[in-house]
Design a protein around this nucleic acid. Structure first.
Lengths: 340, 340
DNA sequence: CGGGTACTCTACAACGTTGTAGTCGAGGGA
DNA sequence: TCCCTCGACTACAACGTTGTAGAGTACCCG
C-alpha cells in the first residue's frame, strides 16, 4: 500500500538504515549516496510512517487538549491559542470535549483514548478538590482552570481573585456603589465563580461598601441565556443598581442585552463589566469593558510546561503553579467618565 | 516504564498472545485462565499501547480536522459538532488550523503531520479550483466548504446558492427592495461569497429588482470588524437601503452595530439578515434572523462519509457530493411585520 | 609501514501489538 | 482402537522505524 523505507532502500540500492540515516540527517553519508536516496524518496513519494516512528521512539508528537465545549467562545479561543502554541513547538493537538461533566472528565483521565499522545492539557470544569487523586495519572498532565488547586500536577491559570477585585474596583472608581453580579454559583466554594466572587467581596470590603445579597444573580451555567435570565430576575427584584459585573463575558453580554431592552442606558445608567476578553467583547454595543485574563499567555505556558514535563522524563520536579498577568480591557460599557 | 502485555503475561503465567486474546475477547479461553489474566491486568493497571496497536492494524482511531481558525465562531461550532460526531463513532479528532492560507492548506495536504490519522476532514478556505489536483492524496479525505467543486474527493457542504436566494426572498417578501450586501469578495467566482452573491442575484432577478453595485460592500475577510467597516462605507455613500444581507452572521452583527450607532432602527428602518445561525445569533440585540445552513448535519455526515471511506479500503466509489438542507431561522432583525 | 581513527555503510534487534500457524490433549464417531 | 475435530494455548513473524554494534575501507600520524 504505502511506501516504506524498504521500498526506498531497494530503489536506491542501499540498506534501510542508510535511508533512515539520510532522513534523520546523520552526518556521515557520502554525498553521492545521499543524492541517490533522496532521488528515490522523491521518485516514490515516500513519507515516514509516524506511527512506527512513534512506537520506536516512545514519542508521538501529539498532545491532547480536553475542554468542556468548543461551542463556548472562551474555550474555542483557548483551543485556538493552544493549537497555535503547540504547532510552534512542533506538536499536533487532539481535542476532546468533556461537556464539563465530572464523570466524563474522570473517564477521560482513566481511558486509554489518549494513550497515543505524549501528554494532556486538561481544562476541568466538573471535577472538584475531592477528585484530586484522579489527577495522579501516568502521563504528563498540565491542569488549567480553577476547580482544583494544590493537586499533584502542574497548573497554569489566571489570577481570578485579584482580577475580579481589580474589575470591581474599576467600577467603584467610576463612582458605582450598587454593583450587581451575574453568574454566581450558589454555595460553591471552588471554581471560577467562587474565586471571582471572592475578588468582588474583597473590593467591596476595601471600599467600605456593604455586601447585598439581593444584588447577586445566581446561575448554573455561564451561557448567554443564563446572563439574560439572571438579569431579568434582578430587574424584577426592583433593587436599584448602577453596575453589573458579569462573571464572564458571555454572561455580561446576555445581561447587557436585557438591560438595554428594559430601557437602561449602558454605561450611563448601568455600567457593565465582563471577564475573559473574548474577541466579541470589542464588537458588542456598546463594546464591553472586561478583564483580559491572559489567555494567550496561559495557552503558551501550558504547552511549554507540558513540553518540559515530556522532555523531563524521570526528572520530576514538584508540581508548579503558574499564574498569568491580567489587565482591564477598557471599553465603552463601563467608561470611567460618562454623562449620567 | 509502562506496563505491557509481557508484564501481564508473566504475572498471569501465560503467553502474551493469550493476554492479547483475553483483551480482544477471543472466545476459546478457559474461564480460569481468563480470570487470572484479568486479575493480572487489574493488578498491574495495564492499558494497551495504542501506538503499537495502530502500527500493527494500520488504523489509529484518530481523524484530523483542518479548519481555518477556531477563533471564528462558525468553525468553532463546526469543530464542536465534528468532535461530537467522531466520538460517537469511536474516533478522536486532531485539530489543525490553517489560517485560511492557501500555502498552509497545501502544505498540510503534503506534510506527514497527519500520517498518524486515518483520514482528514478538510475545510479549505484559501485553495481554489486550480489546486484541485492537490486533493488527490493517498488517504481518505472529505472536503468541506465551497472553494472547490467537482474535485476527486467526497464533499459535504451546504446549499449556498439556494439558501442565499431564500434569505434574500425572505427580505423581499417583507417589502424590502433596496437590499445591501456586506461581505462580497471582489471579482471572486468561487467560494461562499460568490455563491451567496449568486443566490442574492437570482432572488433580485426573480422579483424584477435591478442590481445596484453601490449597495454591495466588499471585504477581504469575514470578521466582525470587516462587517462594521463595510457598513460604515455603505452609509458614507449615502445610497438608501432598507435591508442588509450579511454573507455571514459575524459580518451581519458587525454591520448591525454600525447601523444602530448611526441611529437606524433594526428592523424598522433596516432589516438585517445573516447566514450561519451561530449560537450568538439568538442573543444579539435585536436577535439575528439568519440562515441555518445545517451545520450539525454537515458535521455528522462528514464523519460518516469519512468512516465509510476508511472502512472501504480499496473499494473506492466515485466522489460523492452531499448537501445539507437549510432553513431560515426567523428572529427579530428581519421580522416580517414591523411598524415602519 | 603499522596502528589507530574517522568515515560510510550494514545487520540485527527492539518498540508493543496481533495474525498465522502451529502444538497438544480431550472427546466423539466409526 | 484410530482418526478427526475442536478447544486452549503458544511460538513466531510482522507492522515500519531507529539504536546499537560492528564491518570494511581510507586516511593520517609517527
Amino acid at each position: 500500500m504505502s511506501v516504506t523505507l524498504h521500498d526506498v532502500a531497494r530503489v536506491a540500492g542501499v540498506s534501510i538504515k542508510t535511508v533512515s540515516n539520510v532522513i534523520n540527517a546523520y552526518p556521515h553519508i557520502r554525498p553521492a549516496t545521499k543524492e541517490r536516496v533522496e532521488a528515490a524518496i522523491a521518485e516514490l513519494g515516500y513519507t515516514p510512517n509516524l506511527t512506527a516512528r512513534s512506537l520506536r521512539s516512545g514519542r508521538s508528537g501529539a498532545i491532547a487538549l480536553a475542554v468542556p465545549d468548543l461551542g463556548l467562545a472562551y474555550f474555542a479561543e483557548l483551543a485556538a491559542s493552544v493549537i497555535e502554541a503547540a504547532e510552534a513547538a512542533g506538536l499536533v493537538v487532539l481535542v476532546e470535549q468533556t461537556g464539563g461533566d465530572r464523570e466524563r472528565e474522570l473517564e477521560l483521565l482513566r481511558s486509554p483514548r489518549l494513550k497515543m499522545t505524549d501528554g494532556l492539557i486538561f481544562s476541568a470544569l466538573g471535577m472538584s478538590e475531592a477528585d484530586v487523586a484522579s489527577l495522579s495519572v501516568g502521563f504528563p498532565l498540565v491542569l488549567l482552570g480553577e476547580r482544583i488547586f494544590g493537586g499533584p500536577t502542574d497548573h497554569v491559570t489566571m489570577r481570578n481573585v485579584e482580577a475580579a477585585r481589580a474589575a470591581t474596583e474599576y467600577l467603584i472608581s467610576s463612582g458605582r456603589r450598587r454593583i450587581a453580579v451575574v453568574g454566581a454559583h450558589e454555595g460553591e466554594v471552588v471554581g471560577s465563580a467562587a474565586l471571582r466572587m471572592q475578588g468582588y467581596l474583597e473590593a467591596l470590603e476595601a471600599h467600605g461598601i456593604a455586601y447585598d445579597d439581593s444584588l447577586i444573580g445566581y446561575t448554573t451555567l455561564w451561557h448567554r441565556s443564563n446572563g439574560a435570565r439572571s438579569m431579568t430576575e434582578l430587574l424584577e427584584r426592583e433593587v436599584p443598581f448602577d453596575a453589573v459585573f458579569g462573571l464572564n463575558d458571555t454572561l455580561a453580554l446576555g445581561a447587557m442585552r436585557v438591560l438595554q431592552v428594559s430601557g437602561r442606558r449602558v454605561p450611563e445608567d448601568v455600567a457593565v463589566m465582563g471577564f475573559d476578553d473574548l474577541d466579541e467583547a470589542g464588537y458588542s454595543i456598546p463594546s464591553l469593558t472586561t478583564v483580559d485574563p491572559g489567555r494567550a499567555w496561559i495557552a503558551k505556558t501550558a504547552v511549554a510546561t507540558l513540553v518540559e514535563r515530556i522532555a523531563g522524563g524521570d526528572v520530576v520536579g514538584p508540581p508548579r503553579l503558574r499564574l498569568a498577568d491580567f489587565r482591564i480591557a477598557e471599553r465603552e460599557s463601563a467608561a470611567l467618565a460618562v454623562a449620567r
